[in-house]
């Protein structure tokens, strides 16, 4: 779908552009427009919509996987190679706790990273319209997407609100990759 990027000097102008897009029928819930910034801003400063995420589930699932793996490795080792000492149980619990704990934490950490990438939609192989001035000069980008006529409408909105520059997709292709 064609995209267009408006670059704004201040957060106020970017918020105005986002509001104007909303008034013109661009729906943030459907991803019709989005904001690009070089540093984090407090939520909803631009009146944007961030879809719900499930990042908190990932460490829990990872921890369960790591716990089971740790239990199977330590239990399996001792059952496969039993070390019978003075009638004591074959499964020695204290070392199992240690390795299972490390497995649990490792699983939680790895899944948290994977979850972050997944929820951030990274790696972003599609690229999308982008301009390096967002990080180099502190511009705030407002990206609109839709059919060609809607993109043209967004462009006129950006010009009207006071965009410093407007970047079309063809001119910016592949800049993020």
């Amino acid at each position: 779908m064609p995209q267009i990027l408006g670059l704004f000097k201040t957060p106020e102008l970017a918020a105005d552009a986002a509001q104007a897009l909303k008034n013109a029928g661009f729906d943030p819930h459907k991803g019709d427009y989005d904001i690009l910034t070089g540093c984090p801003y407090p939520e909803e400063v631009f009146g944007e919509h961030v879809a719900p995420h499930r990042l908190f589930l990932f460490p829990i699932i990872g921890a369960i996987c790591g716990f089971v793996a740790g239990l199977l490795i330590t239990g399996g080792m001792q059952v496969t190679y039993p070390m019978i000492t003075g009638g004591k149980p074959i499964l020695s619990l204290p070392p199992m706790v240690i390795i299972t704990y490390e497995g649990t934490m490792l699983g939680a950490i790895i899944f948290t990273i994977l979850g972050t990438l997944f929820e951030s939609r990274l790696p972003n192989l599609e690229g999308g319209v982008y301009d390096p001035r967002i990080t180099t000069d502190g511009f705030i980008g407002v990206v609109a997407q839709g059919p060609a006529e809607r993109v043209a409408e967004a462009e006129s909105i950006f010009q009207k609100v006071g965009a410093e520059d407007v970047v079309r997709e063809a001119a910016a292709a592949g800049r993020t990759s």
Partner: peptide, 30 residues
């Protein structure tokens, strides 16, 4: 990896900092 700096990406970045700090601290102790 194609980072663009959308509000969602920044939100995830903030949350992962807190989550990983909380997870790595007990690993440090262990």
């Amino acid at each position: 990896m194609g980072w663009r700096g959308t509000p969602r990406q920044w939100k995830m970045q903030t949350i992962v900092g807190v989550l990983l700090s909380a997870l790595i601290l007990p690993v440090f102790v262990s």
